[in-house]
Amino acid sequence: MKCGILFSGGKDSVFATYLAKKYENEITCLITIISENPDSYMFHTPSILKVKKQAEVMNIPLLIQKTKGEKEEELKDLELAIQKAKKEFNIEAIVTGSVESAYQASRVQKICDKLELDCFNPLWQKDQFELLYDLIENKFKIIITGVFAYPLNETLLSREINDKFINDIKTLFEKYKINPAGEGGEFESFVLNCPMFSKELKIKDSEISGKKNSWRMELEVI
């Protein structure tokens, strides 16, 4: 099936892309929404401009749609982007990296239904630790680029998702009920390498900003 992927550059959407390919779908485009609102309800915002590099090393066309990121307005912009993908890249289905968020998943489902597209959520309800272990097993190199919940702080930024990271997160999960895969928005990630990339992306520069339990790391990758 010809699929368009809702793509943020984080571990979930890149893994969803990987699974779409593994299940023999044709990925005709990636769709990235750039929100001007850092607290968007729908979209992962840090490091989003770096998705261009990821699209390049995967050799998949990238469709970028900007949005002001206001609640209903951003859904209209998402619909517009999906409509464009249908017209320009003949997609028959949308693939998302939703794991738990019924808010995200149901809004994408409604848009797909309206535009007569199928909708795939290959990570839906997946155990959060199983997801992290799957990423490691499938040779994904991922770093943390944002933390947004107590007691997380800037020390987690730029950490790679590996066994040590999972063990540390397990401790936090038990103590503070932090979602280990971060889909509740506790932390966000960026994929530097995976089996679909023709080469690993390297960090050329990074800039950290934030305070208390809300930190971001903007990356420049080459």
Binding site: L19, Y23, N25, D118, F120, P122, Q125, K126, D127
Partner: peptide
């Protein structure tokens, strides 16, 4: 009938 839907509609039941 589309194999890729297995992950969304079957695996979560199998996991339970």
């Amino acid at each position: 009938n589309k194999r890729f839907h297995y992950l969304e509609f079957i695996k979560p039941i199998e996991d339970v």
